[in-house]
């Protein structure tokens, strides 16, 4: 049985999401190929070749894949699909855009956002914002899966797989890339950070969010997250949203500041190893989940915490 893993990258660097997706492929078992679709993406292919468990890296290096738009990349994957029993991608915004197209073109269902491998074709996946865990088994010959990256540990990088080019020209595009606006980010990447500090509606403004949350995150070497309310109010960029419909993280330490703990937020962080909550409402649902809860005014407590670290 062969497995194709679609690499997550920006043409210059391989995202750690790929090493985590390869880990899911290893749990399924089989010969694992990684597909790098991009433009001038040689360094990415080199990095993918170092991932443990990878038998071969296939590289489609073509201007048509420069922005990894869903239409050309899904055509490419479908073109290669005959060689594989499983097709995997990380459940990133790119993977989520590309893989359902692949599934539809192959006339199979996609198994979305798996959190565990239960058998060659059986997977666990959260539904209802993680309020329930479903185990499903695919019955089609080709199994198309997106992988929740926070649920798998990255494979190591000691391999040396061969790299082979793939020549494929997709149809003329009906969707074109116009521009990209990167969210301001220093510090570690949210999806892969060991520590995350998140702020909620209580921060009240972008200025206060930056003045309160950022120094604590800097002190801890943490990535910054936010609730939907904080993002909707413009205190934090959309890319920082943690939750059912934002990023799902499972860091060693998650610090929730002024976040009440709606189920849609919990869906994105409840698998953190240690959860700290700081909120002035002792009845806030976040405290039911927190390992350590501290009740009080965040505008006093958080600077004091930052100071004492």
């Amino acid at each position: 049985m062969s497995i194709l893993v679609l690499a997550e990258h920006d043409n210059s660097a391989l995202s750690p999401a790929t090493a985590r997706t390869v880990a899911a492929a290893l749990a399924i078992g089989g010969t694992i190929d990684v597909l790098v679709a991009g433009a001038d993406c040689g360094a990415v292919a080199d990095a993918a070749a170092r991932l443990d468990g990878v038998a071969r890296v296939r590289v489609a290096d073509d201007a048509a894949f420069a922005h990894q738009l869903a239409e050309p990349v899904s055509e490419l994957v479908v073109h290669l699909a005959g060689d594989y029993g499983h097709i995997l991608a990380p459940a990133t915004t790119t993977g989520k855009s590309v893989l359902p197209r692949v599934a539809a073109l192959l006339d199979v269902m996609q198994v979305s956002d798996i959190t565990a491998v239960k058998g060659p074709k059986a997977f666990e996946r959260p539904v209802y914002a993680g309020a329930a865990l479903q185990t499903v088994e695919a019955t089609a010959d080709t199994v198309v899966v997106t992988v929740r990256i926070s649920a798998f540990d990255a494979v190591a990088e000691t391999g040396a797989a061969p790299i082979e080019p793939v020549a494929f020209t997709p149809a003329a595009p009906k969707a074109r890339f116009v521009s990209r606006e990167a969210a301001a980010s220093e510090g570690p990447e949210l999806a892969n950070a060991r520590i995350v500090v998140s702020g909620g509606r209580a921060l009240g403004s972008q200025e206060q969010f930056n003045a309160i949350i950022k120094p604590l995150a800097d002190k801890l070497g943490a990535a910054i997250g936010a609730s939907r309310a904080a993002v909707d109010s413009g205190y934090a960029p959309n890319d920082w949203q943690v939750g059912q419909t934002g990023k799902v993280v499972a860091p060693d330490l998650y610090v929730a500041v002024g976040i009440s703990g709606a189920i849609q937020h919990l869906a994105g962080m409840k698998n953190a190893k240690v959860i700290v909550a700081i909120d002035k409402d002792p009845d806030a649902p976040i405290f039911k989940l927190a390992d350590y809860g501290l009740v009080g005014d965040l505008f006093e407590l958080v600077p004091e915490l930052t100071e004492s670290l």
């Binding site: 922005h67 738009l69 990133t92 915004t93 790119t94 009906k174 969707a175 074109r176 890339f177 116009v178 521009s179 990209r180 606006e181 990167a182 969210a183 980010s185 999806a191 960029p237 959309n238 890319d239 990023k247």
Partner: peptide
């Protein structure tokens, strides 16, 4: 809304 920020596409 994509990982890392915002992306604008033009579609036929």
């Amino acid at each position: 809304e994509v990982d890392g920020g915002l992306e604008t596409l033009e579609l036929d």
